[in-house]
Design a protein around this nucleic acid. Structure first.
Lengths: 207, 207
DNA sequence: GTCTATAGACTGATAGAC
DNA sequence: GTCTATCAGTCTATAGAC
């Protein structure tokens, strides 16, 4: 690591950034396992091999670290490949995306734990999670409307679209939790069955 | 309350039981809002108006209180009226049951928060939650098989039944979370749409 | 059955040396 | 940038009085 600092002017920054990434990565695991309230900064720090004071120097406070973790969550969400898809293709990719999550248990634990914990209005991540769900549902609705505009499925009313995107979201969240509780769960098969049946219903008949 | 103790020999017990019920009820709210790790015994105690030492005298430890809360969760689950239903009627009642949950936000918060928190194998309620999901899924599977035996729906293979009951569970859990995050969410409509479509799929065609 | 007092460990955060 | 040392607060749990 000291060698990197010798590679150029930006070397010192690079080690600092690297360290912060390590800390955020460890924080994902700890917050995922114990929740935000139950996760200790000292625990995170010692996993990376630094003192908790050094950690706080980077992020200012525990809540600052949480925000950094949430941003990393956003960043990795963009990386899952869904951004390039639209219309029905978006929904058809969901089983693969969900199956991919099983290779990163820590991140899925973070999703599930923080989302549930933040359902309380007093939680520091409450507004963030609300916003995230709101935009997520809007994105799904947009893809559904696009699929209808392209004639892939029938046209739907606003309230029906909301029901559909909320159900898809519920299935993804709920199946993720069941996989965490029992990793033998075949969430890929379940999500695939759900998506297939939903699209069939969107094509031909109402409800 | 002192009057109750004068009503008979069992008076003293009655006040003790009453107190324990009050504590468990407060614990549901606190564990629901802050999680088990984040919820403080002192907070629970002062809501009931007793010292935290008195609380621990009743339940032995914080974990003992958690177990009492989980038992109460079981007890209230039995009371929701689903126990008397079987076959397809069981699934048809789910929208009403879910709508009823919105009148008891504390309990729904507890479900959601504890289940997510307990997905970590180190959580004291991990085995309990695993067991609960396991028996819950088995019950749903049983009702599905009975519906098939009575000719209400077509026969299904074992893996298809597992997929179906896991999806129903995921929808209930996921919609509950969305309602907690945004109470304007019409979970009744969503669950009803899901159940209706599922039963239609179970009747006529596979997948 | 409930209280006060307290032990003992852990929490997040800060100060100052290097 | 990282450390040690430390603070003030909170946590669960226990001891003993009433």
């Amino acid at each position: 690591m000291a060698a990197e600092t010798a590679t150029g002017r930006r070397g010192p920054y690079r080690t600092g950034i690297r360290r912060k990434e390590q800390i955020v990565s460890a924080a994902i695991d700890v917050f995922g396992e114990f929740g935000y309230a139950g996760g200790a900064i000292r625990n995170i720090a010692e996993r990376v091999g630094v003192s908790h004071a050094a950690l706080l120097q980077h992020f200012g406070s525990k809540e600052g670290l949480l925000m950094a973790v949430l941003q990393e969550w956003d960043r990795r969400t963009v990386e899952n490949g869904l951004a390039e898809l639209s219309g029905l293709d978006y929904f058809l990719a969901l089983p693969d995306v969900m199956a991919a999550h099983t290779t990163q248990r820590g991140l899925l634990e973070l999703f599930t734990t923080i989302a549930a914990e933040a359902s309380s209005p007093t939680h520091p991540a409450h507004e963030y999670v609300r916003q995230r769900y709101s935009t997520n549902l809007a994105t799904l609705a947009q893809h559904l409307q696009q699929a209808a505009a392209e004639g892939q499925i029938r046209a739907m009313g606003m309230s029906e679209i909301e029901t559909e995107v909320r159900l898809v979201t519920a299935v993804l969240d709920g199946m993720g939790l069941q996989w965490l509780l029992d990793p033998r769960t075949d969430i890929r098969a379940a999500v695939e069955a759900y998506v297939t049946r939903s699209i069939a219903a969107w094509r031909f008949h109402s409800v």
